[in-house]
Design a protein around this nucleic acid. Sequence first.
DNA 1: ATGTCC
Length: 466
Amino acid sequence: MGNLRSKDLSKIGYHNDQLRSLVIGITSKNFKHHSRQQLLDLLVEIKDNPEAFLDDELTGKIAEKIIGRAGAPSFKAFELRNEPVFCKTYGSKGIEPAAKRQMELATLLPVSVQAALMPDAHMGFGLPIGGVLATDHAVIPYAVGMDIGCRMALSIIGENESFLKRYEYQIREALKAHTHFGMEGGLDTRQEHEVLDSPVFNEIAMLKPLRSKAVRQLGTSGSGNHFAEFGEMELFTDNTIGLPAGKYTALLTHSGSRGLGSAIARHYTQIAMNTCKLPRHSQQLAWLDLNSEAGQEYWLAMTLAGDYAKACHERIHANLIKALNQEALRVVENHHNFAWKDRLTDGRDVVIHRKGATPAHKGELGIIPGSMTTPAYLVSGKGTGNALYSASHGSGRAMSRQKAKESMTVSAMKKLLANAGVTLIGGSVEENPLAYKDIETVIAAQSDLVDIQGKFYPRIVRMNKE
DNA sequence: ATGTCC
């Protein structure tokens, strides 16, 4: 039987994603005896002459949908610029050519105003990870990233670093009991947060069915490079967070907006790619006009996903810190996959997309993690205009997940961890420390972008297994 | 990153 995919439908002119869902739904249930080619031929016929199918019980629904949309043009095509907009690259030596090429393509979009590439950059979908892009009244879902609102949160706890050794067992048990990583199952205890009461869940049709999953996943962490870890915090003198220089215990988490943000990203990426047609190689950089209905919906949904990601970190920190009978003295947190309305140094109003980049306006605090065996940096932005007020979001991958798997064994990774004095709960060789660039090199490449206020050394790390 | 396509 014909097993139609969204891609096949795009090729025969079914560009609307609601229409494609409808077609896949109807054909998979009712046309089991058709071959794939027969189905495609039938769908082409329906598309070319929908009126002839209106009376049919099954295909009529597809025909109605096509006719309903026939009035308005469904997409707009654009050309690229002849000359790129300004793009400053930091730490160019450590960045793979493919990531630079992706960034160069982004500087040719007609909506682009300015760009910057951070020293941890590597290839991604559309915009590279580590890419920063300012646009004019347009938002590019793929320049925000698939994990909208992916972010860092650091709680500095009121105990000196010896707490880590004395309470190692309790910390390990708390991490096992009060975090949940990855896709299956969830937390044992019900989580609450005002973000679940957001009216936006009811204002946008595609969000309504996502709320129940958001309720279930609140306070959980993702997979891949997401983590929750306790470690030793070293605060430098002249820090701006108002704590004496010295050593502390701290909790650092990295996670995003889970299934909610993923569904939002998928939905609006499809709309952008269907309505904004670009020369083939740049199609993934399709944007939504901020004045369009879809653009305004995306902005609201993206903001909700960002708030939800923040809420997840809040729940994780509250649960862990309470389990250890501690209190947070200070919290530092930042998104690193998001878009903001902002102003360039020349006064132009733009949308700044940061896809794996830390906001670094003058005095703005942020966290740049290394790997599970190397320190994270507490930084304060310098507000550098050429960097679009940004910094790197980590050390950056040096190896793909596949390459990391091939080049590291479980036992070799255990030795790395033991030598670094780090306990890992869960985790996988895909995230092994050697799969990442050297954090010291990456930090050194952005001395114009941030001041360093402290360092965090991971000691007990919890990640998703596999 | 993500019930890895509704």
